[in-house]
């Protein structure tokens, strides 16, 4: 009640004694009085979070524009790009390969249990090939790389921010965006399609192993069906998606690291945010790109 009196004192014009005279009104006004602080704080919270979202969108947009500008203007640190090729591409190969292999295998197994009810076992090869190349290989590779590479980038750049190494770059006449962000974003955008292409092959091969060795298909007809059903567009759409995901993952890692808060806690939060935002953006862009390609 003490709280409820506060807004009355603050805003006497809102409720005056005339309103309070009547019995029924009394209860309603009483209720309203109690709710005023609550409504106020709710509006405040909503407004606050909207402002935060708009601010974040603005700063991400600026970051993207700056990154793209530096991607297109020399000098580019070629050695750093090559090193990131190894870090982002080569070292992600085991993770992406294992993911693709077991996804392909389980896909064959699951679609067999479903399709055998309708005597449609022959469709397994097409299901495996299409789902792997169009959806699963790019999305799962993207998510795995977000966890492996996005987190590492955010932690590394975040630590550099916290220990003033990014400021030190500026004082030594090196643009931090050019030196840290551009090589990673270029490497991510180029390497993820290559990883996904390898993932495509391994994934289809996983389906092939299960179909021929466990489910007893003939290897010739399985491969023939796979070959028949796949079109260039299936592969290409997957690779374009992969490039977009590679860009998103590295960009989010760099953005959150670059704007990391203070101390170990700040870096930890930057790492979490990098992985979470990258993963969600991958799923959103996957839908959007699918709609562009296949509708």
């Amino acid at each position: 009640m003490v709280l409820a009196i506060e807004p009355m004192k603050k805003y006497p014009w809102r409720l005056n004694n005339l309103h309070v005279k009547h019995g029924v009104m009394n209860a309603a006004v009483e209720l309203l009085r109690e709710k005023i602080p609550f409504v106020q704080s709710m509006c405040q919270a909503i407004g606050h979070s909207i402002i935060n979202v708009v601010q974040a969108l603005g700063s991400i947009t600026m970051f993207v524009l700056q990154t793209l500008r530096h991607c297109l203007t020399p000098p580019i640190f070629i050695k750093h790009v090559l090193r990131q090729f190894i870090d982002i591409g080569y070292y992600s190969l085991p993770v992406v390969g294992m993911t693709a292999l077991f996804t392909g295998m389980v896909l064959a197994l699951q679609s067999y249990t479903g399709f055998s009810r309708f005597n449609a076992e022959s469709a397994i090869a097409s299901v495996v090939a299409l789902s792997i190349t169009r959806e699963l290989s790019p999305v799962l590779a993207g998510l795995m790389v977000a966890g492996r590479v996005g987190a590492a980038i955010a932690a590394e750049i975040g630590t550099m921010r916290v220990t003033e190494q990014i400021d030190a770059l500026s004082t030594l006449s090196v643009n931090p965006t050019k030196y840290l962000v551009v090589p990673r974003v270029i490497a991510g955008t180029i390497m993820l399609p290559i990883l996904v292409l390898i993932g495509d092959i391994i994934g289809v091969y996983g389906g092939y192993i299960v179909s021929t060795h466990v489910l007893g298909f003939s290897s010739g007809s399985y491969l023939y069906q796979t070959w028949q059903v796949l079109e260039n567009m299936d592969i290409i759409s997957g690779l374009v998606k992969a490039a977009a995901f590679g860009f998103l993952v590295t960009l989010m890692g760099c953005y959150h690291g670059y704007n990391s808060g203070r101390g170990a806690q700040g870096v930890g939060r930057a790492t979490t945010n990098a992985v979470v935002t990258a993963s969600i953006l991958i799923l959103i862009f996957n839908y959007l790109l699918t709609q562009v390609f296949f509708s």
């Binding site: 220990t163 190494q165 400021d167 030190a168």
Partner: peptide
């Protein structure tokens, strides 16, 4: 030239 508090060595 700048000498940072924590060194800020790469």
């Amino acid at each position: 030239g700048m000498l940072f508090q924590g060194g800020a060595l790469f």
